[in-house]
């Protein structure tokens, strides 16, 4: 498969995520859109890893070329899991205080 396909697919997913962040007001959905963007990046990383592994197929260390990319994806998932746990805790906190998950109520930064 040409790498371009994967690049465009990832960009498309990423931009859908961005459009979601921009258009929605529900904090949980915005959060999910961020997860979607993370996954788009993950997909691209795996694709690049396989691209490099294909290029190095003839080399003696072919077994390790490209593993970095996939390990990065692994770590991104680790961080995302931690982030979601904290982020959802914040959203719960926010709901408890203002009885809404609408980000437009979060305008205290103005003051």
């Amino acid at each position: 498969m040409p790498i371009n396909y994967y690049i465009f697919l990832s960009i498309a997913l990423f931009c859908i995520g961005i459009a979601g962040v921009l258009t929605r007001r529900n904090a949980i959905i915005i959060f999910m859109c961020i997860e979607l963007m993370l996954n788009a990046v993950n997909l691209l990383l795996v694709a690049f890893s396989k691209m490099h592994s294909a290029a190095a197929a003839a080399l003696p260390d072919a077994a390790t070329v490209g593993t970095d990319g996939q390990l990065f994806v692994f770590f991104i998932m680790v961080v995302a899991a931690a982030e979601v746990s904290v982020g959802l805790a914040i959203i719960v906190m926010m709901y408890r205080n203002i009885h809404s998950v609408d980000v437009n109520f979060l305008n205290r930064l103005k003051h």
Binding site: L22, R25, V103, L106, N107, R108, L109, K110
Partner: peptide, 8 residues
């Protein structure tokens, strides 16, 4: 006035 405080 640009600093509306609106996250969006």
């Amino acid at each position: 006035l640009l600093q509306s405080g609106q996250v969006g």
